[in-house]
Design a binder for these strands. Structure first.
Lengths: 225, 225
DNA sequence: TCTTATTGTTAGTATTACTAACATTTCTGA
DNA sequence: TCAGAAATGTTAGTAATACTAACAATAAGA
């Protein structure tokens, strides 16, 4: 099971790049090293020039693959959520009980990928990147255009699968999509908070509190109590 | 009641500015017009140069008040949350029932200030700015230093008041702080989503869905069902 | 081998994010 | 009223960022 996923080449919307990074060695190097460097420096301080010097290439070469660093971030983001979707599909494939499937989904959202090995990019690294940088990537004035060109499709798809599980459990619950996007987004923020703003949460960075918190929150919220 | 708040001069942590903007006319102009301009352009495209030309001054003059645009954003942010705290205190002053107080608090978080008039800055404008820009302002590598210098004190204080209400209602609930920060943050994100990523939520920008969603979520989550 | 794809290289521009130094105006208090 | 401080204006700069253009070199494939 793990080994099938390991070799999967994740599909990413082609609006996100100028040239497919997995079509050449340089391209692979760009996305791989970018993942690390963005994390290390934070988006604010990350530049194509620094990345170029890290991989022994030039700015101009990188611009052949991505329009700018913002698009590169969105690409890595989309890759992550596509990977998460594969995770969800695999991990719930043989589960009949929707409540069990929901449990898996929540764990995925809160703790990141269950399958942590992939030949092309490192899901663990990506998870950290998504926690620290992804929200910045879509809270921009450009979001409306990007939305139209389908760039957020990947995040949508993931969310919709989980909404469907919730509707299976309680078809009368009014806000499945809102609930799912809340958990998706705020599990990232709570992860960030536990590391950087500990006064705002009871959760510890690597403790189980977040998972318990969100499980309880979702289960109670969709119940007809 | 309203008129007392209207004249209040909100207190903001002095680490956020180099010179108090309310100590001079230029300073007031800076923060007032910045609120609008940041909104209009988004943080990405906002510069001190553009602000300077809007208020008929120069970059150098603005740099006397704020270290950089990031600090200016944090200043406006802090002002907003201080204002929210005043709102909370005033609006709950004569309510004995903690569940009623919690209801007020949730409405505040979801819909922004109840009192929308202030002589110094415009709370409505600030609310829009916070929805669109505030998360970007703290999801940065610099957050740890800023945290130490007490810059997030204002957000903490607001959150702690609400946590206290929750503990009053259910002293055994394990995650009051996590729940409150989740609602604070994701009500902003849901507001953003309803405007820009409508596929991720059932909420409409100016509808009552968000309020119903979060009320139900909080009440059920802290109940001992 | 001819062509195409890929990468390297160099050089440039406009904008951004600042800083320094000094001149001018305005206000204040002795 | 006059000296000095506070506030603002002005000019001029630098280093870094975010690109773009144009062309040369190399490798791979049909």
């Amino acid at each position: 099971m793990e080994s099938i996923l390991k070799k999967i080449r994740v599909n990413v919307n082609s609006n996100l790049y100028l040239k497919d990074p997995f079509s050449s060695e340089l391209g692979v190097l760009i996305v791989r090293e970018a993942t690390q460097l963005i994390q290390e420096l934070g988006m604010e301080n990350f530049t194509f020039k620094k990345l170029a010097s890290k991989i022994g290439s030039t700015e101009a070469a990188i611009y052949r693959y991505f329009e700018n660093k913002h698009m590169l971030l969105l690409y890595l983001n989309a890759w992550y959520w596509a990977w998460m979707e594969h995770n969800l599909v695999f991990a719930t494939a043989n589960l009949i009980d929707p409540e069990e499937r929901l449990g898996v989904a929540i764990r995925l959202m809160v703790d990141g990928p269950l399958y942590r090995e992939n030949d092309f990019l490192d899901p663990k690294q990506l998870h950290l990147l998504v926690v620290n940088e992804s929200l910045k990537g879509y809270l921009t004035k450009a979001v409306d255009n990007e939305h139209e060109s389908g760039i957020f499709a990947q995040v949508y798809k993931f969310g919709e699968r989980i909404s469907a599980i919730i509707q299976e459990i309680n078809p009368t619950y009014q806000f499945p999509k809102t609930l799912v996007s809340t958990v998706m987004e705020s599990s990232l923020l709570q992860n960030f908070n536990s590391r950087h703003l500990p006064g705002m949460t009871e959760a510890k960075p690597d403790g189980g509190e977040r998972l318990n918190f969100f499980k309880e929150l979702v289960v109670k919220t969709i119940s007809n109590a």
